[in-house]
């Protein structure tokens, strides 16, 4: 589903002494099937933004359009429930939301609420369990007997079980160890491709944004600060530093390499392997020209 924000402002506790503007005049368009990374300093409005994607928050001013659903200050869509069955949100530390007796029941909770038949739920669970890297034998276990990483996968399976078209991920790898982080991000990327999802990833990791995203939105103080492909956005070191963000480490290295050697290696989302070959070429080139 296409996602469009049109001049969206959101004010917490409007008309009270505690009124606080979390989003201001935010506009962007995400075509269906895009993998978007939303990046910003703590307090930049990222979390407020994603709560607009399934109608948890309604814009104070402006309009949000998700597919054919319109959400604005005057009207919440009557079919909000339907919208929520199409936009799956994985909040931070989703394992804190597990509650049911067994893994299977916990995963089934979402689709059941949306009126999916028992039989269909069963077949969805069958399909999702391996997709999130869990073992079928865990289905009848209590989710609370699992490890942290497994619990998170169960919680994610619960969101995937509603078969969303839009998947919203709020720092989904926080607190996992490095291998767990990589496995989880690879899993989301695979699901994104296989199910042709529109994926919105809120992250602090520039590295993940470079590796997975087609499009990057940088938030600052509730407004859109920059937007573009990772190649366009991440080379703007000074602009990013200004809002307390760093460029990905590979670009930091390319920059300092250029300063030292006065030779520019363009950033093309190259892998470490590719970068090593480029550096080797540069050094060899220097050798042959002398």
């Amino acid at each position: 589903m296409d996602i469009t924000f049109k001049d969206v402002s959101y004010i917490y506790q409007a008309n009270s002494p505690f009124s606080h503007k979390a989003l201001e005049d935010l506009s962007f368009h995400i075509p269906s099937g895009t993998f978007v990374a939303v990046i910003g300093h703590t307090g930049s409005g990222k979390s407020t933004l994603i709560q607009h994607l399934n109608g948890l928050l309604t814009p104070t001013i402006g309009e949000v359009q998700i597919g054919d659903y319109f959400i604005n200050a005057d009207k919440k869509p009557e079919n909000l429930k339907e919208l929520r069955s199409r936009v799956g949100v994985v909040f931070q530390y989703p394992e804190h939301q597990l509650f049911d007796e067994t893994v299977a029941k916990d995963i089934a909770f979402g689709p059941k609420n949306f009126g999916v038949s028992e039989q269909e739920i069963e077949s969805r669970i069958e399909e999702i369990i391996p997709a999130v890297g869990l073992d079928k034998q865990l289905l009848e276990r209590s989710p609370f007997d699992l490890s942290g990483g497994q619990m998170r996968r169960v919680a994610i399976a619960g969101v995937l079980a509603i078969k969303p078209e839009v998947l919203v991920l709020d720092e989904p790898t926080a607190g996992l160890d490095p291998r767990g982080q990589r496995e989880m991000m690879d899993m989301f990327y695979r699901l994104h491709k296989e199910r042709k999802l529109t994926t919105i990833l809120v992250t602090h990791s520039m590295e993940d944004a470079v590796r997975y995203a087609d499009h990057v939105i940088i938030m600052n103080k509730g407004t859109k600060y920059m937007e573009g492909t990772p190649e366009e956005v991440f080379i703007q070191r000074d602009a990013l530093n200004k809002v307390q963000l760093d460029v990905p480490e590979v670009i930091q290295f390319i920059n300092s390499f250029e300063e030292r050697f006065h030779i520019k290696i363009p950033f093309k989302r190259q892998s470490v392997q590719e970068l090593a070959i480029q550096i080797q070429q540069v050094l060899k080139g220097a050798e042959s020209s002398e």
Binding site: D177, P178, R179, G180, E249, V250, F253, V272, Q273, L275, A276, I277, I279, Q280, L283
Partner: peptide, 23 residues
């Protein structure tokens, strides 16, 4: 380190790849 589920810094990785390319 990778076998036991840990990561190594970008610079260490890059140094390793450079070595593989005879630098």
């Amino acid at each position: 380190l990778r076998e036991i589920g840990l990561d190594v810094p970008f610079i260490a990785l890059l140094a390793d790849e450079l070595k593989h390319n005879d630098v």
